[in-house]
Nucleic acid binder design. Structure first.
Length: 545
RNA sequence: GGCCCUAUAGUCAAGCGGUCAAGACGCCGCCCUCUCAAGGCGGAAACAGGAGUUCGAUUCUCCUUAGGGUCACCA
C-alpha cells in the first residue's frame, strides 16, 4: 500500500541525440515521475456492490480538454463526473491540457478553461496553474516523454516506423472509397520493413510516423464501468499513429502515456471513445501497465438525436451563461443528464452531488439536452435566492431597459421579477413597457374574467384618473385603498377597476405585477400621463350603441 | 459499408421476474388571484416489434427494426 516513488522516465536528457528530428522540439527535461502503485481488486468488474469506486485512497481522475476556447456542455459534464468520482472517493481531480494539435490553438482558451471550472466550482487539485507532483500538466510541455516511450514500443515489437507519405495515404483512402469500402484503414505496408530498408530511409531523412502494431488475430476485451464488457476482433483494429511526423504524439498515445505517468485511476470520457478503447488497452499491455478503470459516458444529444452541436443552440458554458442561466443550475441539470439518484431528488448542489453520486447509476443511453428543463432548474435557483441576491443578479438586466433605478423601485421590481423569471435574459422583454408606452390597443380593455369592456372602461377610467390625480401619497397602501374603495363604492369586482387601469398604463395584457405595482413602478407622473392619453383616445372613439 | 453501443410517455428518468409501470420538465384543467407568474390540487401521456426461457416477462436470451457512435499524422 501507499506510494512508491519510481523513476519512470529514465530520462537523462540525452534521448534526442540520436534522433535529430526530435532534437528541435525537445528541451531537456529532467522528469521524475512518481507513480502510485495502484492496487486493484481482482474481479474484472470495477464496481463494487454499493456502487462506489474502488481504491478510495487513491482515486485520481483527470479532465483533459484541448484548448479550443469553447467549453461544450458535454465536456463540462465529463469534467463534473470526473470531479464527482474523485471527490466522492476522497480522491484527486487533475486538470491536464491536451494541446498536441498545433493547428487548433486558440488564444485565451486556457483562461476560459480555468474560468469555467472556477465558475462552476470544480476545483482541481493539480493542474498547469496550481502545479502538482506530476507536473507539467500541459502536453506540449511534456513532449520529451513521448518519443521515449514510442521507441520503447518499437524495441519491444509493438510499434514500427511508417514512412508512407501523406499523399500515398490519401490515395489509398480514395481507392478504398472508390471500391466501395469505407474506413479500410492503413494497409500496413511499412509494418514489416527490413532493418536495412529502415536504415536507408532514416539515412535519407525520410519523415516517418510511428504506428502501433496491432495483433492480426484474436480479440481484445475490456470492461467499462458503465457499458460492461466489450469485445472486439483485433483484426478490426487499425495500426494507428502514435507519434506524428512532427514528433508530436497523437491524442491516443499521449493520453495513455500521461494517464499512466500521472497515475490516473479512472478514465472518464464520452462514449464516442468506446470503440477506440481496445487500442488503448493494447497499448497498456504492450507497456506492461495496468489499464485504468474506464467510465464511458452516454452522449448528450440535440433534439434530433445527434451529438449536441452549435446548430442546436447554446451549447457552450459561456453561451448558456450569456443567456442568463446560472452556473449552479447548469451543473445541477447536466449532472442529471445520464445519472440519477436512487430517490426522486432533483435539486443538488455540487456538494450534495459529491455525497450522492455513484458510477453505477450512470445510464447507457444518450440523453437529449432539454432547454426547457434547464430553464426550470434555473427558475428554481432564482427563486431560492434571497431578495438581495436576486436584486444583485437582476439589476444589470433591468437597468439596461430602465436605466439606473432608485433603491425602492429597484427593490420592488426585483421582488416582482423573482418568481416570474426563469432566465435572467428574459427580463428586458418583460419590462420593456416600463420604458416605453406601446400604442393604445382598444381590444385589450375587453376582458371577460375581469368583466371589463370598452364601455366600462370608458366610464371607469376617467373616474379613476381623477382620483389618482388627487392622490397625495403615491404608495402601495394608498393606491390599494383608492382602487378597492372605488370598486366597493361602485359595487363592482376589483378587477373591473384594476384591469383598465393596468392596461392603460402598461398597454399590454400581461405584466409582472398587478395594477398597483405597475402604478408604483411607473410613478405618479408617468402613470397619469398614460391614463390621460387613453381617456382622450376612448373619447375620440365613436360611441357604441 | 465494417465494427461498437443504445432502446420505458414529447423530454429527463425509476424499475433490476409478480408494480394499478414511480417521479420531474413540458402540456391541459381547477383553486388562489387586480393580468401573468409563483404556490396548491388534479389530468392526458410510455415498456419499438417478434420469437424463446419461465407458472409468470418492461425486466433474462436471440432475431428484427430504429437511432447513435466510430473507422485521421483531430481531440
Amino acid at each position: 500500500m501507499g506510494r512508491q516513488p519510481a523513476d519512470h522516465s529514465g530520462n537523462d536528457g540525452s534521448v534526442c541525440q540520436n534522433r535529430p528530428l526530435y532534437g528541435i522540439i525537445l528541451s531537456v527535461y529532467q522528469i521524475r515521475i512518481f507513480c502510485e502503485r495502484i492496487i486493484r481488486t481482482s474481479g474484472s468488474d470495477p464496481r463494487k456492490q454499493d456502487g462506489t469506486v474502488m481504491n478510495h485512497d487513491h482515486v485520481r481522475t483527470r479532465f483533459a480538454p484541448s484548448p479550443t476556447g469553447f467549453m461544450h456542455v458535454g465536456n463540462l459534464r465529463t469534467a463534473l463526473y470526473e470531479y464527482l468520482i474523485a471527490r466522492s472517493a476522497g480522491g484527486r481531480f487533475i486538470l491536464r491540457i491536451e494541446d498536441t494539435d498545433q493547428k487548433r490553438q486558440v488564444e485565451g482558451a486556457l483562461q476560459r478553461i480555468f474560468q469555467t471550472l472556477a465558475d462552476v466550482g470544480l476545483q482541481h487539485d493539480e493542474g498547469p496553474d496550481v502545479g502538482g507532483p506530476y507536473a507539467p500538466y500541459v502536453q506540449s510541455e511534456r513532449l520529451s516523454l513521448y518519443p521515449e516511450y514510442a521507441q520503447q514500443l518499437i524495441d519491444s515489437g509493438h510499434a514500427y516506423r511508417c514512412f508512407c507519405s501523406q499523399e500515398r495515404l490519401e490515395n489509398l483512402r480514395r481507392e478504398q472509397e472508390a471500391s466501395g469500402q469505407v474506413g479500410g484503414g492503413y494497409d500496413r505496408r511499412c509494418r514489416d520493413l527490413s532493418p536495412a530498408d529502415i536504415e536507408t530511409r532514416l539515412a535519407a531523412g525520410t519523415p516517418f510516423v510511428i504506428r502501433q502494431k496491432m495483433p492480426l488475430t484474436g480479440q481484445t476485451t475490456f470492461t467499462d464501468a458503465v457499458f460492461g464488457q466489450i469485445t472486439v476482433e483485433n483484426s478490426e483494429l487499425e495500426d494507428q499513429v502514435l507519434l506524428k511526423s512532427d514528433g508530436y504524439p497523437t491524442y491516443n498515445f499521449a493520453n495513455v502515456i500521461d494517464d499512466h505517468t500521472m497515475a490516473i485511476t479512472h478514465v472518464v470520457r464520452g462514449s464516442e471513445y468506446l470503440s477506440s478503447t481496445p487500442k488503448y488497452n493494447l497499448l497498456y499491455s504492450a507497456f506492461g501497465w495496468q489499464p485504468p478503470v474506464y467510465v464511458h459516458l452516454p452522449l448528450i444529444v440535440g433534439d434530433d438525436g445527434r451529438k449536441l452541436s452549435k446548430r442546436h443552440g447554446a451549447v457552450s458554458f459561456s453561451d448558456l451563461t450569456a443567456e442568463g442561466y446560472l452556473p449552479e443550475a447548469i451543473i445541477n441539470y447536466i449532472a442529471l443528464l445520464g445519472w440519477s439518484p436512487p430517490d426522486n431528488r432533483e435539486l443538488f448542489t455540487l456538494e450534495a452531488l459529491c455525497e450522492h453520486f455513484s458510477v453505477n447509476r450512470i445510464s447507457k443511453s444518450p440523453s437529449v439536452f432539454d432547454y426547457q428543463k434547464l430553464a426550470w432548474f434555473n427558475g428554481e435557483y432564482i427563486r431560492q435566492m434571497t431578495p438581495d441576491t436576486f436584486l444583485r443578479f437582476s439589476e444589470p438586466w433591468f437597468s439596461q431597459v430602465c436605466g439606473p433605478l432608485a433603491p425602492e423601485p429597484a427593490r420592488l421590481l426585483a421582488e416582482l421579477l423573482q418568481p416570474r423569471v426563469s432566465r435572467l435574459s428574459d427580463i428586458p422583454d418583460m419590462i420593456h413597457f416600463l420604458a416605453e408606452a406601446a400604442p393604445i390597443d382598444p381590444e385589450l380593455y375587453v376582458n371577460k374574467k375581469s368583466k371589463s369592456t370598452l364601455e366600462t372602461t370608458r366610464q371607469i377610467l376617467p373616474l379613476a384618473l381623477a382620483r389618482l390625480e388627487a392622490l397625495e401619497h403615491w404608495t402601495r397602501d394608498d393606491l390599494h385603498a383608492l382602487l378597492t374603495g372605488m370598486a366597493e363604492a361602485m359595487s363592482v369586482k376589483n378587477g373591473q377597476i384594476m384591469w383598465p387601469v393596468r392596461i392603460a398604463i402598461a398597454r399590454q395584457a400581461v405584466t409582472p405585477g398587478g395594477a398597483i405595482e405597475v402604478l408604483l413602478l411607473l410613478g405618479q407622473e408617468e402613470s397619469l400621463k398614460r391614463i390621460r392619453a387613453v381617456c382622450r383616445f376612448l373619447q375620440s372613439l365613436p360611441q357604441a350603441e
